[in-house]
Amino acid sequence: MCFLYFTSLFSFFLIPPFSVCFAQSQKPLQTSTLTVAAAADLRFVLPEIISPFQTLNPDVKVEVIYGASGKFYEQILRGAPFDIFLSADKEYPFLLYTKGYVAEEPFQYAVGRLVLWMRKGLFGEGKDWKELLTNKKVSKIALANPLHAPYGKAAKTALENAGLWEKLDSKFVYGENVIQAFQFAEEKDAELAFIPLAIALSPKASKEGNYVEIPLSFYPKILQYGIIIKKTANLSIAKKFKDYLLSEESQKTLKKYGFGP
């Protein structure tokens, strides 16, 4: 009996070395992988752009990592092996550009919009965003961390311009990125969340809630820039992807998700 236990336990550790040979023999030979670091607001729109790109370029595999732009900026400074970085703002790509981490000049691929999202039925329809924020029902307001998330920064600026930042200080909860801010509101830990329009228009968010747009006069336009990292080993593929992202077809998809001029 004891023997049985020991053999079954140690057999766990034999799986990996054996499957090394197996996994390597199965890999197709000529695919190259493009690693894209993308701002969290692209979580739902980017797959719709990547899948036609992959049908056009079957030999390319596109891997996407989503997160806060400021985090990716730090990681690129430390030598992260990304090929393309799609930021949610203009500042980080240009900072990397001046520091010499970029292959060619940053390109603008979208303009983001900030909205205030809430679950359905929580408040009446058609209210002003400032009215909603000061509503008595509101105990927590979620936003992405303004320190490293562009949409968090934009939310902070809008609140400051409306004179509400200090007044509501105790009610803010910070997500690591915009998706987390959305989750706080979705899981009823917060009543309101500042999120990109692109996420408010995603199937899940539009099914469960509604949103109010923050007027453009309250925050600077969120110009979203992308860059090709200098160290990339796939420069020609990265350029192809950039061209595809800027093509009419992709721009149409972006527009569908609320990105616009």
Partner: peptide, 13 residues
């Protein structure tokens, strides 16, 4: 926690 900080969430790596 450590993996997230040191590794940085790169698929396959």
């Amino acid at each position: 926690g450590i993996v997230l900080m040191v590794g940085g969430d790169i698929p396959g790596k």
